[in-house]
């Protein structure tokens, strides 16, 4: 299996970081006027780091990811990839989207991965398909390499998209709530598998999510974003001991982030730790919006 080419993964502390977001502000026009989605956000991601960008819907985290991917221009500030400013989309920042229709319906699972490899890495047909089959197997789609996307379940489509992103071996992987449209059981399993893949390949990741437990499980570092406009509210390092659900460290960190997001701890916050954090968070976010 091909390893990352040297230019894509410099040793830590060697040259500029894989991703540097410098005082980025993102505005867009609507009929009602100018909306500031993200205001003056700065952070860097080091090689091998997995940064989870956590926040409620509408906090601008997906907009920020799209700007990093090159689909949106920054209103001010700069986004740098290994020091070079981002100007357009490119396979050095492979994106896994939330939506299931990110796969090309006219190509099989292996075909989708191989096409990305041909375009992004300039590989030949035979070699790209060989690697594509290998990657399909690594995400548990070995038996479905020749299946067309419309015959796959949502979870399998996301696996294929993840395999496609990893196969290209980008400088950084951008994940835009890739599991948000999956059922709770599939989501848990995919989180574990993604974590295993990341640790195995040492991939650098920017992972956008609105679920605290997901951010803690997948990320090595968590940035909490606050909405209207989107800003960085707090930053947490996630030690390896706090990565596993059900451990005291995990619970403590989850509670801490919850309190940071929802302000002064509400009386329910004590019981909330034992409840599934996701539904709880959803509920509370809606309430605060309505008030």
């Amino acid at each position: 299996m091909g390893r990352l080419p040297p230019q894509n993964q410099p040793a830590a502390g060697d040259g500029p970081p894989p991703l540097a977001v410098e005082h980025v502000t993102l505005r867009y026009q609507t009929d009602a006027g100018t909306v500031t989605a993200v205001e003056d956000v700065s952070f860097t991601i080091d090689a091998g780091e997995r940064l989870a960008l956590l926040g409620p819907s509408g906090c601008g985290k997906s907009t920020l990811l799209r700007a990093v991917a090159g689909f949106l221009k920054t209103s001010s500030g700069e986004i740098r990839l290994h020091g070079a400013p981002v100007r357009a989309p490119g396979p050095d920042r492979m994106v896994v989207f939330q939506e299931f229709d990110q796969l090309l319906p006219w190509r099989t699972v292996a075909g989708n991965i191989a096409f990305a490899l041909r375009r992004a890495r300039g590989l030949g047909r035979a070699e790209s398909f060989e690697r594509a089959r290998d990657w399909a197997g690594r995400v548990g789609l070995g038996g479905f390499a020749d299946a067309y996307p419309h015959t796959l379940s949502g979870g399998m489509k996301q696996r294929c998209a993840i395999a496609r992103a990893f196969a290209v071996q980008p400088a950084i992987l951008l994940m835009d709530e890739p599991f948000a449209a999956l059922d709770a059981l599939s989501r848990r399993r995919m989180q574990d598998e993604l974590l295993a893949l990341c640790e195995e390949t040492g991939a650098t990741c920017l992972f956008v999510t609105h679920a605290i437990d997901e951010a803690l499980h997948v990320g090595t570092r968590v940035l909490v974003m606050t909405p209207h406009p989107g800003r960085i509210g707090a930053e947490y390092a996630v030690p390896d001991a706090a990565r596993q659900r059900g451990t005291p460290d995990f619970g403590r960190l989850e509670m801490e982030i919850q309190q940071r997001i929802f302000g002064a701890a509400l009386p329910e916050a004590k019981t909330a730790a034992s409840l599934p954090a996701r539904t709880d968070a959803h509920h509370r976010v809606e309430v605060t919006h309505n008030v």
């Binding site: 799209r66 989309p89 396979p91 994106v95 989207f97 939506e99 990110q102 090309l104 319906p105 375009r119």
Partner: peptide, 29 residues
Amino acid sequence: VPPTLRMAGRNIGLTGPSYVVGLLIPAAL
């Protein structure tokens, strides 16, 4: 053609003619 599919195409490096031939035409078939 769904916006996600468009973005996925541009993400893997399709631009100009290759974007039309490799993504838009098959998607609009």
